[in-house]
């Protein structure tokens, strides 16, 4: 178990290094950072001073090492627009995003998982077909279309709910529903196929052949096994809590991290973009690590299996 966890930890660190390298490489490939961050018509002395202070006059490998050092110290640069540290800008937007994505995650879990299990247990019945129809719709209707149609119905035509902003919890209803419905559809589809896969296994037939009541077969044998793949996708959803609302925040003018990212990309505010990229990578890696630990708990085979085979 310890070896299993330590390989996962090394892999997590490697992923973080990979993201940092990715940011470094595209930052260097995109042109001279001095010209990008200052403007091309800045005085030559200012550009020279900037290069020196950022170490841009050093060889590439030294820049790379310094870049790692700066990030390890939490020095992610300043926003081009108002000169504040990029990390502060990002951190102060996190609560607003979580205020949308956590209720949406609960909505996804509460609708998606029971719907998927129910559909799998009633395969090819009406309930199953309705669930699949809903899940296909959830997959093919982009969130900005769903959001705008909800605004058109509930804000413009009926006048029941506000169409954007963040003044009260009522403003959060439409964005949470938009986010939650699409995710619930994905989760329902995923849970259903995981359940169907498990229900087709020989041990399920054995369990019901030995006379076990069907609900016991489902609760004791099918659900724990179907939980393994489902945990992976839920982990991905938890990992994208911070960045999962880019489009929806833009539709509803919700001042979260996603909205900040879109504005920063449009203005090419590189320090902020880079900070969000690393922040998202860190949350994804933490979520994946948690999922890996949960695996060890849900699936006893992983605790005893040799690391070489764990892949």
């Amino acid at each position: 178990m310890l070896r299993y966890l330590s390989t996962r930890l090394v892999r997590a660190l490697l992923t973080i290094c990979f993201v940092v390298t990715f940011a470094f490489v595209i930052l260097r490939l995109s042109g001279d950072p001095a010209l990008l961050i200052l403007s091309p018509d800045a005085p030559p002395e200012a550009i020279e001073a900037f290069r020196k202070s950022w170490g841009l006059d050093r060889p590439v490998w030294e820049q790379y090492v310094r870049y790692f050092g700066a990030i390890a110290e939490g020095n992610l640069g300043r926003s081009m627009r108002d000169g504040r540290p990029a990390l502060d800008l990002v951190l102060e937007r996190v609560p607003a995003t979580l205020a949308l994505t956590i209720p949406a995650l609960i909505l996804k879990l509460v609708i998606g998982i029971p719907a998927g299990i129910y559909a799998a247990l009633h395969r090819n019945k009406l309930a199953d077909r309705m669930t699949m129809l809903f899940s296909v719709a959830g997959f093919t209707v982009p969130s900005f279309v769903l959001g705008l149609v909800l605004v058109l119905i509930f804000s413009v035509n009926l006048g029941w709910l506000p169409s954007g902003g963040q003044d009260s919890w009522i403003h959060g209803i439409l964005p949470v529903i938009t986010l939650g419905t699409a995710g619930a559809a994905v989760l329902a589809r995923f849970t259903r196929s995981a359940m169907l896969e498990v229900l087709g296994q020989p041990y399920i037939r054995t369990a019901s052949a030995k006379g076990l009541a069907w609900h016991r077969v489902v609760v004791d044998h099918a659900l724990p096994n179907a939980a393994i793949p489902t945990v992976t996708i839920v982990g991905f959803m938890v990992g994208s809590l911070v960045a999962g609302a880019v489009v929806v925040e833009s539709v509803f003018s919700w001042p979260g991290v996603g909205r900040l990212l879109v504005v920063a990309v449009a203005n090419r505010d590189l320090a902020v973009v880079q900070t969000i990229l690393l922040f998202v990578a860190a949350t994804m890696v933490c979520a994946n690590l948690t999922v890996d630990m949960l695996y060890g708990w849900i699936d006893p085979r992983l605790r005893t299996r040799r690391v070489a085979g764990a892949g």
């Binding site: 595209i26 995109s30 960045a243 880019v246 990212l261 990309v265 505010d269 969000i276 994804m284």
Partner: peptide, 12 residues
């Protein structure tokens, strides 16, 4: 999430 990578590349 690919959207984040895509946005970063577009920004840079």
């Amino acid at each position: 999430p690919f959207l984040i990578i895509a946005l970063a590349v577009l920004a840079f």
